[in-house]
Simulated assay, not measured.
Amino acid sequence: MSSPYIKSASVAAALSALDEGRTPERSVLREAVRALLTLLADGAPGRSVEVRVPPYGAVQCVPGPRHTRGTPPNTVEMDPETWLGLATGRLDWVRAVTEGRVKASGARADLSAYLPLELR
């Protein structure tokens, strides 16, 4: 994944499109999702939780036991718009999980301590 410093404009562009009720361009949304996933991995180093935002990316993060084969026991999955909201503080973790916008499984899958991300 590329540097979040370079891609921060894509986050702003994606959020702007969503605020205007438009769907962000696919390439902008992809870059925004990947930039924010990179920030998460940098801010919560580890390999015990896999965070998936299909179809744009996935990272392993959060300190704890490392997972190496098959489906990790701690997974978090959501759509790109939900990820943008959570990562930027526009959406609360508990609300997103309660509304079914986030699928989280495993004892370490609660990312509320790491969100929202500090944008650079």
Rank of each mutant, 00 (worst) to 15 (best):
Y56N: 07
E20N: 14
S10R: 02
D110N: 15
T82F: 10
R101F: 10
R120L: 13
L15M: 12
A104T: 05
A13R: 12
V59H: 02
S8Q: 15
P45S: 04
P73L: 08
D92H: 03
G21R: 15
R26S: 13
V33Y: 06
R52K: 15
N74S: 06
D79K: 05
K7S: 14
G100Q: 13
P65K: 14
I6M: 13
P73C: 08
E50P: 10
A113D: 06
A35N: 05
R108P: 00
V62M: 01
N74E: 03
S27P: 04
V51D: 04
P54W: 12
G89T: 02
S16I: 01
L111G: 00
A14I: 04
A32R: 02
A12H: 05
T75E: 12
S16N: 14
T98Y: 12
R69T: 13
V76M: 08
R69N: 08
R101T: 05
D110R: 01
K103G: 07
P80K: 07
S105H: 12
T71H: 11
D110S: 03
T82Q: 11
A9M: 08
V11R: 03
R30T: 14
R52M: 15
G21W: 15
P65C: 05
R26G: 06
R108T: 02
L15V: 07
L111H: 00
P80W: 11
Q60I: 05
L39A: 01
G89I: 02
S3Q: 12
V53T: 07
S3R: 13
E31R: 13
A14W: 07
H67K: 06
L37Q: 06
P72Y: 11
L117C: 01
L15S: 04
A13S: 14
R95F: 07
R30H: 14
A41W: 02
G64M: 05
T88Y: 11
A107T: 14
L86T: 00
R66V: 11
V51H: 06
T88Q: 09
Y5G: 14
S3F: 09
K7G: 07
T23V: 15
R90G: 02
R95S: 12
S2H: 13
G43N: 02
Y56C: 08
T98W: 13
P54V: 09
L91N: 06
E31V: 07
G57P: 09
S2F: 12
R26W: 10
L15Q: 10
S8W: 10
M1Q: 09
V62L: 01
A35I: 00
P116H: 10
A104S: 10
V97N: 06
P63K: 11
A107R: 15
T75P: 07
C61D: 01
S48Q: 05
P65V: 12
A113I: 00
A107C: 09
G106Q: 01
L15D: 06
G43M: 00
V94Q: 13
P55K: 10
A32L: 03
A107D: 15
Y5H: 15
R47L: 08
R26T: 14
A44R: 01
P72W: 10
D19S: 10
E118H: 09
